[in-house]
Structures are given as C-alpha cells and as structure tokens.
Design a protein around this nucleic acid. Sequence first.
DNA 1: GTTAGAGAAATTGTCGCCAATATTGGCGAT
DNA 2: ATCGCCAATATTGGCGACAATTTCTCTAAC
Lengths: 219, 219
Amino acid sequence: MTDEGAVLEALRDAILAGEFAAGQRLVEVDLCERFGCSRSAVRAAIPVLASEGLVDVQRHRGARVRVIPLSEAIEITEVRRLLEGLAAARAAERVTPAQAAGLEDIVAEMRVAVGAAELLRYSDANARLHARIRSIAAHDTATSMIERLRAQLVRHQFSVSLIPGRPAVSLAQHEQIVAAVVAHDPVAAEAAMRDHITSVIEALGSLAEEQAGAGRSAR
Amino acid sequence: MTDEGAVLEALRDAILAGEFAAGQRLVEVDLCERFGCSRSAVRAAIPVLASEGLVDVQRHRGARVRVIPLSEAIEITEVRRLLEGLAAARAAERVTPAQAAGLEDIVAEMRVAVGAAELLRYSDANARLHARIRSIAAHDTATSMIERLRAQLVRHQFSVSLIPGRPAVSLAQHEQIVAAVVAHDPVAAEAAMRDHITSVIEALGSLAEEQAGAGRSAR
DNA sequence: GTTAGAGAAATTGTCGCCAATATTGGCGAT
DNA sequence: ATCGCCAATATTGGCGACAATTTCTCTAAC
C-alpha cells in the first residue's frame, strides 16, 4: 500500500466500517502506521474525504470523522429520495428480462431474510437491490451522488433498520418498487421509490424525537 | 498565497473562469509559478478538484481539466432539475416578505436586461436569482450539490444562453417561479422550476443535435 | 518513407526535514 | 482551591530533494 489511491480507499472503508469512534481525531502518523505508508499518502487522502463529507478538517487542527446530525441525515435522505426516484424511473424504462429476473431474485432473498429475522442479510440484500437498480438506470451522475450520500449516513441507516417492525414494512415497499420496474412503468416505479424513502425519512424523524426525549430525561 | 485553501480556490476559480483550454493538461510546476506557491499546495488542491469532477487525474500522468460531453451535461441538468425543484418548493414554504421583495427585484432586473439585450447582465441576474432561492430554501445538502453540479457545466450554460430567443423564454419561466414562491405555493414553485429546467434540457438537446450535424458536415 | 527501439527530458510520486500552530501540563498568583 | 499565564509537547503545514514513470526525440533498420 504505497500508492495514494489505495490509502484513500482503505481509509474510506475504515471510516465506513465504523472503525473510528464518532468525532474521533485522525492523527496522520497513526494512520501511517495503520496502513503502512508515509504521511504523504494520508495527507493526500484526507482532503478528498473532506470534500466527500466524511471527515472534517480544520487548519492546524487536523481531521476528525464527521458526525452527521440527524437533522442533516434527514436532509440527505430528502435528496436521496429524488435521486433514487429518478434511478427507479429510468430503470423501469431500460430494464431487460434478465435484469428483471435478477431483481426478483433479490426480493425473494429479502423475503427469506425477513422471515428468518436475519437483519444483516436483509440489510445486505437491501443495499444490493438499490445498487442493482442504479446500475440498470445507467445514470452516472445520479449514481455517483447517491453513493456519496449513502456513504455519509451508513451509521444512521443501520439504526433505522433496527426499528421494530421496520423490515416488514420495508419489504413490502421493495416489492412494489420491483413490480413497477419489471412492469416497465416508470411513473409507478418513481412513486414507489419515493414512498419507500419517505417512510425512511419518517423513521429517521421518529428516531430524532426519541433522541430528543432521551436527551431531556438524561438531564 | 502560501496556504493550501487559497490555492484550491484560486485554481478552481481559474478553471471556472475558463482560463484553461478544454482538456488542457495541468502541469504542477506551471501552476506553482502561476500562483506563487510550491508544489505541495497544488498537489493538495488537485485531488479535491478531481473529486468535484472539475479535473481528471491519472496516475503518473497528471491532471487535465475535465471536458464534460453534452450527454453528461444533460444528465447533470436532469439531476439539477430535481434538486432545484426541491429548493423552490422549500423556498415557497419559508420565504419572508423581505425575501420576496428581493426576488422580485431580481426579476425586474432580468426584464430590463432582456429588453436591452444585455446577455451578460441577464446571465448574472439569473445566477443570482437561483442562488437567492437556494439561500431561502436553507437546504444545505441540496444547495451544495446544486453548486457542485453547476460548476461542472459553466461552459455549457453559457452556450445555452446564446441560443436566439432563449432569454425571453427563460424570463417568463423565472417570472412564474418567483410568482409561485412569493405566493407560498410550494407545489407550483416546484413545478415551475422543473418546467424551467426541462426547457434548459431541451435546449441542451438541440445543441447536441446541432453539434452532431456539424460533426457530420465537417467530415 | 515508415516504424521500432533506445536514450533523454519532463513530469509525477514519495520521503524526510524543519517551521508554524495548537494542545497539554505545570507553575505561580490571588 | 481556582484561575490565568507560560513553557513543553504533539501535530500539522510547507518545502526541497530524490526516485519512479511517462513522454518525447533521435537514430537506425527495414
């Protein structure tokens, strides 16, 4: 790992995997040791992660992993609703029979995961389904923005999927999305995707209330 | 200009101002001379501009200013249509009387500019109007993405505004947008903004055809 | 005349050094 | 005992030098 690109990816993956505490300070020499590279590499990587919104840098104070407040997570998801809606519509226009079968396979796997209460597997299938839809849509601009936004809220996404009863609701929504895409109905696909992400926003909102309540009771 | 942030901004501004030819190679030492700084600064700035989509870097080959094909400009504008629609809707919900007056002032200036056929002034007022709407919407996530997208196609925007008759059409659309925002009608504001940007997309499409035709006749 | 190859030049990638700044710990005064 | 100030330390910012790679150029062979 002597080249810059590899360090960038490794550091990004580490942040996304939650290997740093929220708001933890990223000391350059520590990262050098961790990734077995010299400071140049991490110093090249950090500004990029900053421009991706993953870390926060202050002059002469170094970088910290950026902690995204729930209010911002909601904003991000509002934007994501539009972009993923666009992707769903375009996917419905362009989907081939083989791709349609692939989507239905993933939905089938989601059903199994929900039935067996395998949260991790469901969450993985969920990510794969959305990624597949993006790939079918073949809208590079929307795709790259969606991926950037998703990266910013990996932590929040996880806590949403922990809400009791959430996977069942989410499963039904995904079934609708895929049905519309497979039926080549862009309008319905966009609407279904927006409904889905709207419910994610509502879930985030309920987390916000809960959090505020906990804050009050803790005082 | 010895610090990194200043170099980043200067280089970005230079690219946005069109001071480099399309696809021109950005040699590090040249930029050092130009900005009176050492290589460290430009080497820190370039990866950031790359992640903003303004330059293209290849390992051991340096950076070039990225030239955005019309097809991608259309994709970008499709995304921008969604995001600016969101901004318009939120602006309609939040606008204060003072802000409304400010919007109408800008529209009045646009009318004058169109009447006097002052293209540059119109284009400037146009940018200010959109910026003002974003600021009223107060949606940081959408705003930063819109600004990033707009930066990527400054060149194309210019060529759209050069289409004969375009300013008059555009003016009417902006009047509708502002009317809806001032009337606190988010649905109408979003629709008006989308109509406006849809017509920009169509204008880009006609440029694409023209370009294809020119390409054929040149052969 | 064209093309393949070797060498030279130019450019980028990496590293270690020193300076500038922020943070921490200790000391003394109130 | 607490607060404010000052030195000590840790960390980042910037610079130059050297190594690795690409690109250009000139030569020679076909």
